[in-house]
Design a protein around this nucleic acid. Structure first.
Length: 562
RNA sequence: AGCGGGUUUGUGUAAAGGUAGCACAGCAGACUCUGACUCUGUAUGUGAGGGUUCGAAUCCUUCACCCGCUGCCA
């Protein structure tokens, strides 16, 4: 069962809604009918965030109008599809919180019906068996202003019917013949130039084994599947726009229980990100990433490992809107959506990434005490935890500067009073350096009257609050620095291979960039991801999901430096 | 070239002839036990020209530019 994911109510209304409302209004094509949609992934790869946009539209539209959305594996081409992907796809969709109930289907389960419909078309003289070889087919296809040709177009119905039966019976090798719709060889829309309806392919199907050796094309199978399932609105991406006339042709000429309508929308683009399934597949196959769930991938399972929450991804997809113009959303917006969610839900733990020793010189040697820190300042219900404090601590190296820059309000000799989060107020008194001039130890004095972080006299603290960990009790942790497979420049714009556009930093990180980290909370999980913009995220592949928030930021631009 | 689409601020998206709004990013402040979060303020936009109208992002028209299609893939 899918997890319930609560999203804020959005006043969303887009052009698809406008079409649908026309359709179901009095006098409309679907007056009085319930709107039904479907999400039809092809099981030939893993789902990525672009699919979440489609999911959001498909499920969201059905829900908005009180209908249902089916999940249907679009598996009409056995060359690429595999059962491996079916389960992964279902898992990812459930992870996002979408629920198809008991309406899970396979396009291939309609093969018999597809076949029957094809026979019907032949009998009506609307389809014929064409014996052009693939090479001839290409040659005879024509061009702009030049009609296509097929010498088999006017073959008698009985002959086509017979050949079609024998195609199914396996009498012919791959590519020997096809079943084509008889539409318009001169159409300016190439999809209407007698499109192929069936091709021969002697390849076992992942579900039907060797039952079939002819398989219906998407353009033929899809409208039939939609109609059979009672889908009223078949929402798909823009590249199918030119196929809509063919979709309508099939709906019109086949013997179907309903007449679904196809509406297209623009697919999601995100800057600096590789999104096409073809490219993602190549990254996996060439071993440039560890798998489909490599944390740098924009796949749902990759994002999951990087610590993205389902809610944040859904929120993102809700808020980017739906239109027909090409769009490239800034990656920063995705991050905003994550931050927004994490800020409310992530349990905080103090951690130090690039540690430098800090000694509280006036704190008794050998003494230890525990202080209380809240687990999530914006959610008191998250409770508090006890953290060990002593004379010797680790703090972030960047929290100290020997010579301060303007507006710097952290530690420097003679600087402002700062707060060690949840512990005491301190004042920096100096530092110790090695021969090379590197700071090896920060020295400070604390105010014993400020236990818990608040001064006894209620004075304002000018400096920043600094996170820290106790040197003696800190747990070592391996922190993995992940970034996306950011590309620069845009992989689609350049005429070079997108592999050459990948951010070299993210490739380097693949080898396992380890950063020493000490965790204040000894019970904290030992396996973290460090996300840009200041979040630690637990690698949910190895342990239960969770997040730790860190208080420094790194921007996208920084990921290209060095 | 033929067919099909598209064009609202840096990005995404609203405005169904009637104040061009929202979110993110930016900038400037305030607040804060995370330089986070939150809050406040602020700059930037209807591709171009003509027409209809009291009034046009919206309707008409001409043009410009951008994208998709020419698999026996989906």
């Amino acid at each position: 069962m899918a997890d319930e994911i609560k999203l804020p109510e959005l006043e969303s209304r887009n052009f698809i809604h406008a079409f649908i409302e026309e359709d179901i209004a009095p006098g409309g094509q679907y007056e009085g009918m319930t709107v039904h949609t479907r999400f039809p992934p092809e099981p030939n790869g893993y789902l990525h965030i672009g699919h979440c946009k489609a999911l959001t539209i498909d499920f969201g539209t059905a829900e908005k109008y009180g209908g249902l959305c089916n999940l249907r594996m679009d598996d009409t081409n056995p060359t690429k599809e595999d059962e491996e992907f079916v389960e992964a796809i279902k898992e990812d969709i459930h992870w996002l919180g979408f629920d198809w109930g008991d309406r899970f289907f396979y396009g291939s389960d309609y093969f018999e019906e597809d076949y029957r419909q094809a026979e019907g078309l032949i009998k009506k003289g609307l389809a014929y068996v064409c014996q052009l070889t693939p090479e001839e087919f290409k040659e005879y296809r024509g061009g702009v202003g030049v009609p296509a040709r097929s010498p088999w177009r006017d073959r008698p119905i009985e002959e086509s019917l017979d050949l079609f039966h024998r195609m199914r019976a396996g009498e012919f090798p791959d590519g020997a013949m096809t079943l084509r719709a008889k539409i318009d060889l001169a159409s300016g829309n190439f999809n209407m130039r007698d499109p192929v309806l069936y091709r021969i392919n002697h390849l076992p199907h992942h579900r039907h084994g060797n039952t079939w050796c002819i398989y219906p094309m998407y353009d033929f199978a899809h409208p039939i599947q939609d109609a059979l399932e009672g889908i009223t609105h078949s929402l798909c991406s823009l590249e199918f726009e030119a196929h809509r006339p063919l979709y309508n042709w099939v709906v019109e000429h086949c013997d179907l229980p309903s007449k679904p309508r196809q509406i297209e929308f623009a697919r999601l683009g995100i800057d600096h990100t590789v999104m096409s399934k073809r490219k993602l597949r190549r990254l996996v196959e060439e071993g440039r990433v560890s798998g489909w769930d490599d944390p740098r991938m924009p796949t749902l399972c990759g994002l999951r490992r990087r610590g993205y929450t389902p809610r944040s991804i859904r929120s993102f997809c809700e808020r980017i809107g739906v239109a027909k113009s090409a769009n490239i959303v800034e990656y920063g917006f995705l991050e905003h959506c994550l931050r927004e969610d994490l800020n409310e839900t992530a349990r905080r733990v103090m951690a130090v990434l690039r540690p430098v020793k800090l000694t509280v010189t006036n704190y008794p040697e050998g003494k230890t005490e525990t202080v209380t820190v809240e687990n999530n300042p914006v959610d008191p219900a998250a409770g508090t935890r006890e953290v060990c404090f002593s004379r010797s601590l680790w703090v972030e190296a960047e929290d100290f500067l020997e010579a301060p820059v303007p507006k710097y309000k952290r530690l420097y000799p003679g600087g402002p009073e700062c707060r060690l989060k949840g512990a005491y107020l301190i004042r920096c008194t100096g530092c110790v350096k090695d021969q090379a001039g590197n700071v090896t130890e920060i020295l400070c004095e604390y105010d014993p009257e400020s236990r818990g972080g608040d001064p006894a006299d209620g004075r304002k603290v000018k400096g920043a609050t600094i996170h820290w960990v106790d040197a003696a009790t800190a747990a070592d942790a391996e922190v993995r620095l992940y970034s996306d497979l950011f590309t620069d420049p845009d992989p689609d714009a350049a005429d070079k291979d997108f592999i050459d556009c990948l951010n070299p930093n993210s490739l380097e990180i693949l080898t396992g960039c380890k950063v020493e980290a000490a965790l204040a909370d000894a019970s904290a999980p030992a396996n973290f991801q460090f996300m840009r913009l200041g979040y630690f995220c637990l690698d949910s592949k190895d342990a239960a999901p969770g997040h730790l928030v860190f208080n420094r930021s790194v921007s996208l631009k920084d990921s290209f430096k060095k």
